[in-house]
């Protein structure tokens, strides 16, 4: 058997693929954070809770109304996105003029409230959510056993990441959004409804988190704690990628997923800190992050 650094190549390829799958979740979540931070300058601490809410929305759609996975993939993000828009409109929008710390504290409080509420109703051991019948089973790739659902996660998240990037960088709506962050007063004077744009942006970010939540539901236990276990890593991804850089968030998400996967082969105990070690190194060498514009 071929080996690299004493690790069989088959195992290495397997871990690279697993890293890519995890990277998909990181990319999708950090993308939402980056969109919100880039356009609203709000550090959205409620992102993990919104991800969890997406998974629960899918679960409740299934158990309460019998709506399955495929419709939930559209409906759950819509629900979470609308919830996000409502919160932005009624509460968060009042904080834009204040120090960014207020937005951070508000979303942090929101995350605790959401998690606490779900914990009250569902406990912490969570609930199972079965993958759709079309995506069950696995394919033997020779070097590893790839569950079909995991393959789907990579495809779906790549497609959504690309879609959001195109929306913001290449469309008229995206141009308005970017202009509104550069100079809201000027854009407003052209007759564009800036507050509405901001509400849409926060809703979009929340919907992305909700989408990741639905994708994650069949893989992980649907539990009120699922978001808080992930959110810190996702923040690190955004910092490494460069706060607010959309392309940076996507690329870094995948890269760090792979770095983490490789660490799990060579030294598993370090797998949950490797991302933070990389973050520290990047902050020393390039304080604005790998893709940050202020460097």
């Amino acid at each position: 058997m071929m080996t690299i650094f004493g690790i069989p190549t088959a195992a290495l390829f397997g871990q690279l693929l697993v890293g890519l799958i995890n990277g998909s979740f990181y990319a999708l979540l950090s993308l939402g954070l980056a969109v919100i931070f880039g356009l609203l300058r709000v550090i959205n601490f409620a992102h993990g809770a919104q991800y969890m809410a997406g998974a629960f929305a899918a679960l409740l759609l299934l158990t309460q109304t019998g709506i399955g996975y495929w419709p939930a993939l559209i409906l759950a993000p819509l629900i979470v996105g609308l919830g996000g828009a409502l919160i932005e409109r009624t509460m968060l929008s009042r904080l834009y003029k204040l120090d960014p710390l207020y937005g951070l504290l508000f979303t942090f409080g929101l995350a605790l409230t959401l998690e606490g509420t779900f914990r009250w109703f569902f406990g912490t051991s969570g609930q199972p959510y079965a993958p759709p019948a079309a995506l069950t089973g696995a394919v033997n790739l020779g070097f590893m056993f790839l569950p079909v659902y995991r393959g789907w996660v990579v495809v779906a998240s790549l497609a959504v990441c690309l879609g959001v990037w195109l929306l913001i960088e290449k469309t008229k709506l995206g141009a308005y959004l970017r202009a509104a962050t550069e100079n809201p007063v000027l854009v407003q004077s052209f007759g564009v409804n800036v507050p509405l744009l901001l509400t849409f942006t926060y809703g979009l970010g929340a919907a992305l988190a909700g989408f990741a939540g639905v994708l994650a539901a069949p893989v992980y236990q649907v539990s009120p704690l699922m978001g808080s276990n992930l959110i810190i890593v996702v923040f690190a991804v955004v910092v490494v990628g460069g706060m607010g850089s959309i392309l940076g968030a996507i690329v870094t998400g995948y890269l760090l997923g792979i770095a983490e996967g490789l660490t799990k082969v060579f030294y598993p105990e370090a797998s949950n800190i490797v991302i933070f070690v990389i973050m520290a190194i990047v902050l020393i060498l390039r304080p604005a992050g790998l893709f940050g514009k202020d460097a």
Partner: peptide, 20 residues
């Protein structure tokens, strides 16, 4: 044996090692 950090969400890497 393979050691995983407390509150790991994804076990696939560890499971692949156990499988191998």
């Amino acid at each position: 044996a393979v050691r995983h950090p407390l509150s790991t969400t994804d076990f696939s890497s560890f499971l692949l090692q156990a499988q191998a």
